[in-house]
């Protein structure tokens, strides 16, 4: 495998790891529950995406055959991650978990019980 290819693969892996790190940092840095919900969705989209692209290039170049089944990981994550985020958010909405005062249009303050 050529040096250039290894550099490209490493760049994609680092990019993915960077976004996964930022997503995790978001979990600790952001203040209320609903804002923290945004962190993990980041880690799954570009974080996993970058690593998958790196993996596709590595195995396609190594075996001299196009290796695409990593794409299925992205496909299933793209289907499942928003659904779990939606359900977690719905549960938090039902419990009326405290959120930052500056949040606008808080549903349960607008029309009593939602």
């Amino acid at each position: 495998m050529s040096f250039l290819l290894e550099v490209i693969i490493s760049l994609f892996l680092l990019l993915g790891a960077l976004f996964a790190l930022v997503g995790s940092l978001g979990l600790t840095r952001l203040q209320d529950f609903f804002m923290r919900l945004h962190g993990p969705t980041k880690a799954t989209t570009l974080g996993v995406g970058g690593m998958i692209i790196g993996s596709i290039i590595y195995f396609s170049a190594g075996d001299n055959a196009l290796s695409m089944h990593e794409l299925l990981i992205a496909l299933f994550l793209f289907i499942t991650a928003p659904v779990s985020a939606h359900i977690v958010g719905k549960a938090a909405l039902h419990r009326q978990i405290a959120c930052e005062e500056r949040t606008r249009n808080i549903p349960w303050q607008q029309n009593g019980d939602d």
Binding site: T41, A85, H86
Partner: peptide, 11 residues
């Protein structure tokens, strides 16, 4: 909406 970051659909 959930996949494009910055917005999450909750209900």
């Amino acid at each position: 909406i959930s996949l494009t970051p910055g917005t999450v659909s909750v209900d």
